[in-house]
Write a protein that binds this DNA or RNA. Structure first.
Lengths: 336, 336
DNA sequence: TTGAAAGCGCTAACAA
DNA sequence: TTGTTAGCGCTTTCAA
């Protein structure tokens, strides 16, 4: 149905060989100015576009990168994607976005699919369900460039771009303490995720430093990072029914914060005099609440940009890269 | 760097010809059971994946579709994308998402890029800046399957999936009237967009039907659909400084609704006793406000699914399709 | 039942 | 300066 003209067409039309046309289009020094102009003009006229599949086949690279995130309807990720796009597009790469919806199975399928789609590299933030990363390890060992951001695995040695989660969590928790809350609970994504571990550390550090003890029953995990609202609802309800009911919650994620607020709203408890909330979120909607909600903002756009730069470094490296950094970007506490 | 095994490798290893391997892998009737098993097993063992570029080149299709939306950080679009993905993936298609950020230039670049990336079809919602659609018309005429959703052009004859914008707007406006508001303003995206026109119709219909007159100064357009917050701010401020100040605003979009609320918040006017708001939005965050905000919900997921089904119908059609429908899906008013 | 060869669009080594 | 040819991975016609 949809056919665009090829080098062959141009060659035939101009009575030249395909190689001459190819070289002319690529502005090769071997071609005379006259021929070049002839070819270029005609190509322009018929709106010639090189066939990317042919190019990929020939050059053994697709000039595309794959992204794996939980979901685009999450301000952290949509901002990160904007950062990724900005770098990738400017360097001539297409971006293929896939969503796991926090499912391990979908992560495996997506990664498999991207790899077999012959992307040149992968940008991944692990799903909440993912603890086994052998599907990625395998690809990594076979030489596929991978950069992790946000939720990163321990085991695989490559570039990792993360926010200073511990510090962000520490600041948010400290803020709650300074605001007069002494019984601070913590709701987080699945326990094994890097971000959960780091944010938990920040939370406990802040409590310790302020002479508050840690109550294990104050710490709740939602194994699906808030994708399953029932998990959030159960967590919040359990917290609220504790004998020693917390007076604040530090929530460790964008979706979780919203989920939590929905539960509290439903219970008519969405009010800091009843229970205060502070959480990780990149959504500016928190501004709109009355009273507004303090949140930890991650430099998502910058993280996306940096991750992409690192990935392109790997992809375009002349020699195998063996030295990897772990870049930690600073979060920002929006006190509201 | 990252090489996976090819049919050639398998052929060499098993001492067969590439064509035999190819046929065995495709379970061709011409190949003996023994050879098939041999090949299949070995392929499994070396984790053989067909090279999609070679396939695309050969079959002249890429099994991928391109999406063009304003931005993924918009609940309407992220939900539509989920719908698109659900159908596309189940039918073996990869999806390439691009964002225009409401810019005409970026729309042209993205469309151009997708077309030259040899996607098999395009799913498009026009950018707020787009009034000239010749870049799409051209591709359409050359036979590229295109389905429009949400913001659709008049001129191009193909499948179009839209919400019943007029009715949705009518209901939201009527709701405001029923709630006692008589001076209802309207903030919308750029005036030429199909959704703006349709929503304006619903708005004026509701006013007329209730014996209210239309004040042109009550109707404001933001040419960038809320991407430029200054435009929203100006619009709101102009409305608020009118001698005959409106007591309600019907806002015609997801991002615009949020933008509007930010401005009102800044002016300490985010309160229905001062000025009420009702708008098109697919975000459930509106639930959380006190008092909550009434909104028109579009069946974004369903629209995405339907659009994809129609697109695949076009892509996989044996004969050129010349009969096109315009599917109108019902919105839902969430009275809060 | 299997293999040889051509061709999808493109680039590049080699020849002229 | 331009042309011929081979090959990237795959399918498919034709031949054996």
């Amino acid at each position: 149905m949809f056919e665009s003209s090829t080098i062959k067409d141009i060659a035939r039309a101009l009575n030249l060989s395909t190689s001459t046309v190819s070289r002319a289009l690529r502005d090769s020094y071997e071609i005379s100015a006259g021929t070049k102009k002839l070819v270029m003009d005609y190509a322009q006229q018929v709106n010639y576009r090189p066939n990317p599949n042919a190019l990929s086949l020939k050059e053994r690279r697709s000039k595309s990168i794959g992204i794996v995130v939980s979901e685009v309807a999450n301000h952290y990720f949509s901002q990160a994607i904007n950062g990724i796009e900005s770098i990738a597009n400017s360097r001539g790469y297409t971006v293929i976005i896939t969503q796991t919806h926090e499912s391990f199975e979908r992560e495996k399928t997506n990664v498999q699919h991207l790899a077999s789609r012959s992307v040149d590299g992968l940008l991944i933030s692990l799903s909440a369900e993912t603890s086994d990363v052998s599907h990625l390890e395998q690809l990594h060992q076979r030489g596929l460039p991978i950069v992790f951001f946000d939720r990163v695995p321990e085991r695989i040695d490559t570039f990792k771009i993360i926010a200073d989660n511990a510090k962000g969590a520490y600041e948010a928790t400290s803020h709650l303490i300074r605001s007069g809350h002494l019984k601070i609970a913590h709701i987080s994504s699945s326990a094994h995720l890097s971000i959960s571990i780091e944010r938990l550390t920040g939370y406990t550090d802040a409590l310790h430093e302020n002479g508050l003890s840690i109550h294990p029953e104050y710490i709740k995990n939602c194994p699906h990072g808030g994708m399953i609202q029932d998990e959030v609802e159960t967590a919040v309800k359990e917290l609220l029914s504790l004998k020693n009911r917390p007076d604040a919650i530090f929530v460790a994620g964008d979706r979780l914060t919203m989920g939590c607020m929905h539960v509290l709203k439903k219970l008519n408890m969405l009010n800091p005099t009843k229970i205060a909330i502070a959480g990780f979120s990149n959504s500016d909607v928190l501004d709109l609440f009355n009273p507004p909600i303090t949140s930890v903002f991650q430099p998502a756009f910058d993280m996306g940009q940096l991750a992409t730069e690192k990935l392109l470094e790997l992809i375009e490296a002349k020699f195998p890269v063996t030295e990897f950094e772990r870049n930690i970007l600073q979060t920002r506490l929006f006190i509201r």
